[in-house]
Nucleic acid binder design. Structure first.
Lengths: 237, 237
DNA sequence: CGAGATGTTGACGACCCTCAAGTGCAGTGG
DNA sequence: CCACTGCACTTGAGGGTCGTCAACATCTCG
C-alpha cells in the first residue's frame, strides 16, 4: 500500500469517474471507455505530461500526486498553476492546436489520459453531447477557480496572498474528499513565490509568522491549518 | 450613427456571429436563432446584466460597450474582471445554478442575450454538438485569458502590472478587430486599482510616469499606446 | 451653476525585495 | 553506513516601492 503523504482521490470524486458516469458507464473497467482513456498511468517525479508548443491532443486527469504548469516568457519561466488530485490538466488547451504550458509532476503519482481529439469518433451523438456538456461544466469551473486565484494573487499584502493561497489549496482538496486540515504542499517555496508574485524569502517569513501566531503549523512541506477562520479573516476583509 | 468613442465589433468578429456560424446560419436575421437569442439589446450605463446569487440562465455577448463584474466578500466588493466587445459574459457560470458575480455595463452599449438553458430543446443534436463545441472552445479561451491575467496580476512592481494590463486590453481589442493603439479605458482608476491589487494613487502615478517616458499618452479615459514594444518589455523580463 | 463623484498631488512610513551568508536535507557514491 | 555534493530552505541587514492620509483639482450631471 502506498504511503499516506501522496493523496489519491476516491473514485467517486475523481474527475475521470465523473466523466465515466456522464458516459453512462458506472463500472471502472468498461471497454468502450478504454478506447480513449489510458487508466491510472503512473508518473515519476518531474515527468512531463505535455510540453509548451506541442500539439494538443490529451486531457490529463490527476488521480494521485500533483502537477505544476509553467509558461516561458522570453526565456524566463513563470509558474501558471498547480493541479491537485481530481483536477483536469490541459483543459485550457481546448480549441487551439498547441499547448501553451509545460506541465510536469511535482511528485510520484498516477494520472488518467483522455484522448480529447478522438471523442467525436469514439462516441455516439448522445454520449458526445453528455461528455461535451460535462467538459463545458469543467471548463467553466476551471474559469471560476482561475478568477478566484486571480483575485487572491492581486491582494495587497504578502500575508493576504499566502493565507488565501493556503485556504484555496485546502478547499480544493476538501472538494475532492481529501484531508484539508493537514496535508502536504507539494511545490517548492520558490514555486509558491513565483506563483504569487512574491520573493521566496517573503513566503518563508510569512509562513513562519503565521505559525508563530498559531494559525498554521508548517514543517518542511507538511502543513496543518490550525485556525482556518482566522486565516480566512486575513483576506476576507 | 453612434459616436466613435464607444467601439462596436464588426459582425464577423463578434462572438455571437461566430456562434451563428457554428449554427450554420450565416445570415444575421435567421428565424431559428431568434428563439433563443435576443439581438442587439441596448443597455444603459450602470445597467445590471445579472446579479450575484441570481439563477443562471443567460450568456451575454457584448456587441458594443463594456462591462465590469464584481463579487462581494463579506460586504466588501472586489472587481473580478472586465468584458470588452466581442466577449461573452456569464460563461463562467455554466455548470452551476446561480451567478457568482454581479455584472453591469460600464457605458452605453448593446448586447445579445443567449438563453443557455434552452439550448438543448431549441436545437437539433448536430446543432447542439456544434454549439457545445464552440462554447467549450470559448470557455477554454476564457480560461487561458484568466490564466494570463492571473500571472500579470501577480507581477511584483506596479509598473509591470499596469503595463501588462494595458497590453492585455489592447490585445483583446485587437483580436476583435478594434483599434488597439488608441482607445478608451472605460473603467475608473479605482476599478483598475482594485482589479490589480494596487492603490488608486499608485495607478495614477504609474500611468503618469509611463506618459512622461513617452510610452503612452493618456488623457482622462482616452489612452494611446505609443511604444508597445517597450511597454511589453517592462513585464516580459 | 453647484454639489458630489472622480481624479490628482505631496509627504511619510511600512512592507517587502535584494543581496549575502549560512543551515538543513536528499540523493549519490564510496 | 557515512561522507559528499548540490539544491532547497532559512535568516539577517538595508534600501526602494508603494500604501495611507490629507488636501486639492476637475469632471459630470441635474
Amino acid at each position: 500500500m502506498q504511503a499516506n503523504n501522496t493523496s489519491a482521490v476516491m473514485c467517486r470524486n475523481c474527475a475521470l469517474y465523473q466523466t465515466a458516469r456522464v458516459l453512462g458507464l458506472e463500472t471502472p473497467d468498461c471497454s468502450s471507455l478504454n478506447r480513449i482513456v489510458l487508466r491510472n498511468h503512473p508518473v515519476r517525479k518531474n515527468e512531463v505530461l505535455y510540453h509548451e508548443g506541442e500539439t494538443f491532443r490529451y486531457l490529463y486527469l490527476i488521480h494521485s500526486g500533483s502537477c505544476i504548469s509553467n509558461a516561458t516568457m522570453l526565456g524566463n519561466s513563470r509558474v501558471m498553476g498547480f493541479y491537485l488530485p481530481g483536477e483536469i490538466a490541459g483543459i485550457e488547451n481546448i480549441g487551439q492546436n498547441t499547448c501553451n504550458h509545460t506541465t510536469y509532476a511535482l511528485e510520484k503519482g498516477s494520472i488518467c489520459q483522455l484522448d480529447f481529439s478522438s471523442l467525436g469518433e469514439a462516441l455516439s451523438k448522445d454520449e458526445l453531447i453528455n461528455v461535451q456538456k460535462y467538459l463545458l461544466g469543467s471548463a467553466a469551473h476551471h474559469a471560476r477557480q482561475l478568477q478566484w486565484e486571480r483575485s487572491l494573487t492581486g491582494m495587497q499584502t504578502a500575508e493576504q496572498r499566502i493565507a488565501a493561497f493556503l485556504v484555496n489549496i485546502a478547499s480544493r482538496l476538501d472538494t475532492r474528499g481529501l484531508p484539508a486540515r493537514q496535508f502536504r504542499l507539494p511545490m517548492s517555496r520558490e514555486a509558491i513565490a513565483d506563483y504569487l508574485g512574491l520573493a521566496m524569502e517573503t513566503v518563508i517569513r510569512t509562513l513562519k509568522n503565521l505559525q508563530s501566531r498559531n494559525l498554521i503549523d508548517i514543517k518542511a512541506k507538511n502543513i496543518e491549518i490550525i485556525d482556518e477562520s482566522s486565516l480566512s479573516a486575513l483576506f476576507v476583509y
